[in-house]
Nucleic acid binder design. Structure first.
Lengths: 356, 356
DNA sequence: ATGAAAGCGCTAACAC
DNA sequence: GTGTTAGCGCTTTCAT
């Protein structure tokens, strides 16, 4: 099969004739013998149209291969039918699931999704917001920590609905997705205590990340609730990547009394921790138990399969969309708080504390 | 810090006053005492403008907080400054790196990236193309296999530049990113043969995926080149997910003469393979060597770190952008082929064949 | 139920 | 170097 047949390439002549005649609503109207307004009504199903008229319009649309120009539509109606999603880094396995779910629902509702990465650089946040403003998005989901109040104000001033993940509080045009980390963390500590662990360490994420801090604080709190003392030497900070977990664990292993269990601020960190433990010739969970956070897809396939605190990412995607959709369709000026709970998924990286 | 202070929420009165006065080019022009055309010239730097005028315009823009409306701009100029990227599934770890890289470069060039997932469903491809058409993208990168020639024609007919990944041939407005799999695969087989392996199996991807077939064929070819016989029983098909690799390996282990080495069509498959080997009480690479494909980020952190054929995803992102940018800026009607080579990354999942 | 026409915010061709 | 103005393709009153 040659190239032309394979892709059904059109001839240059055919293309020229078509590009001059870029099909628009006027041509459809002419062909159907109606006004452009009627075509618009058929396309958008705004007000009822006579049955015969509708059929004529539809067949004209089909015959001409008409696709409405979204930009013109936006200009006319004021709604872009586009939501923005600002995240740190799409290659962080936490985000793709959220983005995918959000996109699917958005498309089902006739909305588009515009994704912008800050790449963890606060100054890129400004560019992201600018893009959202220029594209006139109907709402923005912000899932980074790098959020200058000034930039938020830029969006809020224009009445653009915003939904935050985890950070931020509900306000005018501002919703928030609250993730109940404490629930999962308490279950995790309970699980470890039940296995006899007393020396429990925590490897946190970068201090600049609000959600990482929340996880860290929830850990402290849960530990206190259980009456366990929380030694500062059992608190290490990572970077939410494998490398950070690894070096944090290396330090923990140098302690005179290394922990018997470690909870990580995310699964990548846990992978690094396990790696360091293995590198030291120790076993998971034989010598040290490890609990991750997030439950990214790969976690259940690790050696050993990772016990982890699941953060339901699909639900986050749904809530983010729901928040923006509610705010932008109804004229609900005040945001809503969406609650998402976490749960402990017990697999094989945790076990009874080693007998001395 | 309370909500208002934290986000610098604006008052309702302030917002009302602003939303009525949705800042547009005319207001900037009025404030700067120039025409809208001049403002446009300053914003787009199309033709030189007097130094004082420019300064006045810029300060008006700043004072008013003006952000040009991209949709109006698109309507006026005919260019949307937006590229589409159609992929199967953003949560497949192969894609985020490509998307991220593409997006970064695109933004640097004043372009936006619109991502659409087909979710592996051919019928969703139609919706994706429609979205691209309606948003009037300046070009589309198609990185799925589900590509109905009819849909391609829809894009091509309108002179919209397309770039394919791996599949497809160069033609009018059509570029292709050719990935030289054979190079990496040959190196992989060479590596295994050097370690004494003769019984080498291959676990392919889904037969519906063009790139998976290309990988599979390249394997066959390389094997023949080396004069090794290629037993049909050593050819299993997976699904490019962990599960598929696992069950494929389970079958391979049932063979009277199981292979001593396995090459997988992607890294996830390799993870499944390793899992099955471990589940059978065997060791990697002690009993069986495993080579993956892609080199996703996690591969080097697996136990054991995975030897794999790296497909440079950042380069793919760059090439995809370059192809579209070249095609849409110059009026180069004919596409280009971009070549990307693969390389073997030797880590610890491969070792000498087990002595009998 | 349908048509006519006035925008939406910007660009670009043309004047000066 | 700068202003004027006619579109770009659609939505949306306002008539009819």
């Amino acid at each position: 099969m040659d190239s032309a047949a394979r892709f059904a390439i059109v001839t240059e002549a055919e293309r020229r004739s078509l590009s001059h005649t870029h099909v628009n609503i006027r041509e459809v109207a002419k062909k159907a013998g109606v006004s452009t307004a009627t075509v618009s009504r058929v396309v958008n199903a705004t007000v009822p149209v006579g049955a015969v008229t509708e059929r004529r319009v539809r067949s004209a649309i089909k015959a001409l291969g008409y696709y409405p120009n979204t930009h013109a539509r936006t200009l006319g109606s004021g709604k872009s039918h586009m939501y923005g999603l600002i995240i740190s880094d799409i290659s962080n396995p936490f985000f793709p699931d959220i983005a995918k779910c959000f996109e699917r629902i958005a498309v089902e509702h006739g909305q588009e999704l515009l994704i912008a990465n800050t790449d963890y650089q606060p100054q890129r946040m400004q560019l992201c917001v600018r893009r959202m403003l220029e594209r006139k998005v109907d709402g923005v989901a912000i899932m980074t920590s790098e959020m200058d109040p000034h930039l938020i104000r830029l969006l809020n001033k224009r009445g653009i609905p915003i939904v935050f993940l985890d950070t931020g509080r509900v306000g005018p045009y501002i919703s928030n997705i609250f993730i109940d980390y404490s629930n999962g963390i308490e279950k995790a500590i309970e699980h470890l205590v039940g296995l006899g662990h007393k020396k429990i360490a925590f490897v946190s994420g970068p201090a600049t990340l609000a959600s990482a801090n929340i996880r860290s604080e929830a850990f402290e709190l849960s530990l206190k609730k259980r009456g366990l003392k929380s030694a500062a030497s059992y608190r290490k900070s990572g970077d939410h990547r494998i490398e950070g977990g690894q070096s944090a664990m290396e330090e923990l292993l140098k302690l005179r009394q290394p922990p018997t269990a470690v909870i990580a601020s995310n699964d990548l960190t846990a992978i690094g921790i396990i790696r360091a433990i293995h590198a030291a010739g120790l076993k998971v969970p034989g010598d040290i138990s490890v609990i991750g956070f997030d439950d990214i897809e790969i976690s259940k396939f690790l050696q050993p399969p990772l016990t982890t605190i699941r953060v339901p990412r699909a639900e986050i995607g749904v809530s983010a969309f729901t928040a923006l959709y509610a705010a932008s369709s109804k004229r609900a000026a005040h945001g809503t708080e969406y609650r998402i709970s976490t749960e402990l998924v017990v697999r094989e990286s945790t076990g009874p504390v080693k007998a001395k």
